[in-house]
Structures are given as structure tokens and as C-alpha cells.
């Protein structure tokens, strides 16, 4: 399995994935025209023909034996420029009176565009039949090698928005308590409209004044900053790389935003460059075990590739690749690659 930039020929596979992803993955709308537009944007981004702030990098996880698309992931260079980026900032309010002995701390939600200009760890979707052999980790974490390689294409800070809590029937308590009163539509419909990039309606309908959290239902209050059960693993992965809750939440489902400085991401900090050596003797990776794997990128923008190798392949300055691996990475002996262990050491 390897990572490469998305290609024009991937459109059918993308649309298939959008069908699979369903509600909650707003960045993958089930709409061929919109998907084609996203694809065009990604191609132009890799070609550097778009302004820096408009670039979105879409990557595909590909099965080299069949060339089948197993999953996709994305990086946005800078959010909130074309569309307006909305969050609620979760702030504290203290209501205190010495005279009558009251000191109460409450939360207040402030509609904000504070995260405008941050880079974003965006879409990720892995087809169900490929959810094994470290594929999810490779797909997600491969982006950090891209960030490490091309920091000039991104901002200082990067965030990821996590899908918020909803129950088995898809009901979001946060939406029911807040958004529904203003949008007069189902959560899934609002979510779909956002995915289509139709964000004007948010500005038109969203409450502009701060929201007193104690006035929301108990159920809604309980899920502020809480992720969907299916998103727990993704959150754990981001946290292991150094992302933390930044007190911004999604305005629809209350899901948390997590963020960090790009240079502080574990995989960015620990990644190193190596010279490529070619050898048949280099150990084959064992995808069955969590540890002992290295992500390796070829450091090229347009022909970007990442795959997993055994950590035994790394010497002090040289990384030994099998000929087949070198071929996938588009590298030869003497080229340089960037590598880092797939997972943080302590995990």
C-alpha cells in the first residue's frame, strides 16, 4: 500500500467513497459535480497553479497490486478564505457577588472566525475492506511527512475538526438543542449543505450573539467538545502526535477542534532525511505488528509518495529499500528520502 497525490482518473473511486462515507463526513459530499470540483482544486494545488491560501492537497491510499483506491485524506493549506470558517469558542464566564456569596463559573459559546488562516488536517476516509494492516495509520500520518517536507505551503498552526457526538440514529443532541431552532432542518440536511460548500446559509441563519451554555439542554451540554464514538480512534491518533483540544467546537454538532503548531507535531519533529540505498537484503515490513514500522516519503511534491518499511531498513544516514519499494517511491540509490516511525514510541 502506498500514498500518492490524487489523479484525474480517480473521480469514479472518489464518488464511490462519498457514497460510503454517509452523514458526518462533511468534506465528502455525495455529489459528482462537487467532487469533480474538489478534484480539480487538488490537481491545481499540486501544480502550484492556485494561490497558496486556496490549496487543498488530496492524497490517495493505493493498493499497488490492483491500483485500487483504498482511501483518501487531505490537507488544507489555509482555511476560511474562500468560505468563511465558523466555530464556537468555548469561553468561561464567572458570575460572582461577594455581597450575597455567589461564585458561579459557566461556559459561554462565542461564534468566531478565529481559526481562519490555520492549516487543516481535513478529510480522511478509508474503505471498510481496507481497515487493517496499519492502513488507517499510514493514511492519516503520511500527511505529517508532507507537512515536514513543505512547511512553506502551510501556516504555523494546524487544526483538525472532529466529528461530534451523535446517537445510533444520527441524532445530535447539540444540534437538537441549538441549531435546530435557527435552521429549521434536520442535522443531516444542514451537514449536507455544508459539505457542498454552501456556507452562506450558516452566516444567514446562525445565532450571532453568544450562547449561554447553561441554557442548552443537559444532553447538549454533555456533548460539547465530545467526539462521535467512531471518531475516538482518530482523536487518539491526533493526540498521540501532539494535537490538543483548543476550546473551539463545531457549530453544528459541538465536536471538538484540536490543534497544534506544525513544527511541534511528533512526526514532523522526529522525521529525518536519509540517503537511499537499494538492497534485496533489507527486511520486509510486518504489517501485523504495531511497532517497528517507518513511514518513508520521497520528498517530491508532484510525485509525492509514502510507504511503510521495516525500521531495520534505517541505518545512521542510509535507508535501505528493496528495488520494488524504490520503484513505488520513484527514487534511486543516492536520492534522499524522509522517514519517521509510524507511531510514537510510547504507544
Amino acid at each position: 500500500m502506498y500514498i500518492r497525490p490524487i489523479q484525474r482518473t480517480d473521480l469514479d473511486s472518489l464518488c464511490l467513497m462519498a457514497k460510503h462515507s454517509g452523514v458526518g463526513v462533511t468534506s465528502l459530499p455525495d455529489n459528482r459535480q462537487k467532487m469533480a470540483a474538489k478534484l480539480d482544486q487538488a490537481l491545481a494545488s499540486f501544480e502550484k497553479s492556485l494561490p497558496l491560501t486556496e490549496r487543498v492537497y488530496l492524497f490517495a491510499l493505493v493498493d499497488e497490486s490492483t491500483e485500487e483506491l483504498a482511501g483518501i485524506c487531505a490537507l488544507e493549506s489555509s482555511i476560511g478564505h474562500g468560505d468563511v470558517w465558523y466555530n464556537y469558542h468555548v469561553g468561561k464566564s464567572v458570575h460572582a457577588s461577594r455581597e450575597i456569596g455567589v461564585h458561579k463559573i459557566t461556559q459561554t459559546l462565542y461564534l468566531s472566525n478565529d481559526l481562519t488562516g490555520c492549516s487543516e488536517i481535513a478529510t480522511l476516509f478509508l474503505m471498510p475492506n481496507f481497515r487493517n494492516n496499519q492502513n488507517g495509520h499510514l493514511l492519516s500520518r503520511s500527511r505529517y511527512l508532507f507537512l515536514a517536507e513543505f512547511p512553506e505551503l502551510f501556516g504555523d498552526e494546524i487544526i483538525a475538526e472532529m466529528r461530534g457526538y451523535s446517537d445510533e440514529d444520527g441524532n445530535s443532541p447539540f444540534w437538537e438543542s441549538l441549531g435546530r431552532h435557527f435552521f429549521q432542518m434536520e442535522f443531516s440536511d444542514a451537514d449536507y449543505l455544508t459539505g457542498l460548500g454552501n456556507k452562506v446559509f450558516i452566516a444567514e441563519l446562525m445565532p450571532k450573539f453568544p450562547i449561554h451554555v447553561p441554557m442548552l439542554t443537559a444532553e447538549a451540554q454533555a456533548v460539547i467538545g465530545r467526539v462521535h464514538p467512531q471518531t475516538e480512534p482518530a482523536l487518539a491518533m491526533l493526540k498521540s502526535e501532539g494535537f490538543e483540544f483548543n476550546h473551539y467546537i463545531d457549530i453544528f454538532d459541538g465536536g471538538p477542534s484540536v490543534g497544534t503548531k506544525i513544527k511541534n507535531i511528533r512526526a514532523v519533529r522526529e522525521s529525518k532525511t536519509y540517503q537511499v540505498g537499494i538492497s534485496d537484503q533489507t527486511p520486509a515490513p510486518d504489517f501485523g505488528v504495531k511497532h517497528g514500522l517507518l513511514m518513508v516519503s520521497n520528498r517530491q511534491l508532484g510525485e509525492y509518495r509514502v510507504l511503510l518499511v521495516d525500521q531495520g531498513a534505517a541505518g545512521d544516514d542510509t535507508l535501505w529499500l528493496k528495488p520494488a519499494q524504490a520503484k513505488i517511491l520513484h527514487v534511486r540509490a543516492g536520492d534522499t528520502v524522509r522517514a519517521v516511525s509510524l507511531r510514537p514510541k510510547e504507544l
Binding site: 455581597e99 458561579k104 431552532h181 435557527f182
Partner: peptide
């Protein structure tokens, strides 16, 4: 308290932001 204390505590405790009635 309203009848007994000064009204200062009102200023201190009452939420300053508008309240959306539908909530």
C-alpha cells in the same frame, strides 16, 4: 435578596449577553 440587599449583585450576576427565547 432583592428586597434586602443593594442592587449591585444584580449587575454582578445577571448574564450580559442576549438570551435567545427558543433556547
Amino acid at each position: 435578596y432583592c428586597s434586602m440587599k443593594s442592587k449591585t449583585f444584580m449587575s454582578e450576576l445577571i448574564p450580559q449577553h442576549p438570551v435567545y427565547v427558543p433556547l
